[in-house]
């Protein structure tokens, strides 16, 4: 009985691993003013959302100059910072997103992405 149960659980686990995460992607991008670096980051993340995540994505861009409280609440130190709130786990990508291989892996898009890495 017990072995049956565990094997069933293991099967379910493997099935869930194989499947793509479901639900909307929630991304938040924190930038500091309209610098070149900020623009690059915004551009990259918008591109990513449109090309890879289609409409299954919520993107919020926050300028911490205008909302400094949010910088504190979200523990922003470096800018730009992209926070992947969902799917879990939470990940932070700091920088202008010139290199998004890591982001691809985290978003579980693999190397099949359409945009240049």
């Amino acid at each position: 009985m017990k072995t049956n149960k565990t094997s069933r659980a293991a099967q379910a686990f493997e099935k869930s691993l194989a499947a793509r995460p479901t639900g909307r992607y929630v991304l938040r991008l924190f930038v500091a003013g309209a610098t070149a670096r900020s623009r690059q980051a915004v551009l990259r993340v918008r591109q990513l959302c449109e090309a890879e995540l289609k409409d299954n994505c919520t993107l919020e861009v926050i300028d911490i100059y205008q909302q400094p409280n949010l910088a504190r609440d979200n523990q922003i130190v470096a800018t730009p910072t992209l926070i992947k709130e969902f799917p879990r786990p939470v990940r932070r990508f700091i920088g202008n997103l010139a290199n998004i291989t890591g982001l691809f892996v985290e978003l579980d898009l693999g190397a099949k992405g359409k945009i240049a890495v």
């Binding site: 690059q40 400094p68 910088a71 800018t79 920088g95 290199n99 982001l103």
Partner: peptide, 24 residues
């Protein structure tokens, strides 16, 4: 607080976030 395991570098950045918080 920065959780090292959560953070990945993906390009150029600065610590403007820290400055903004301090300034605020």
């Amino acid at each position: 607080h920065i959780e090292r395991s959560e953070v990945q570098e993906s390009g150029e950045y600065d610590l403007e976030g820290l400055f903004v918080r301090l300034n605020h």
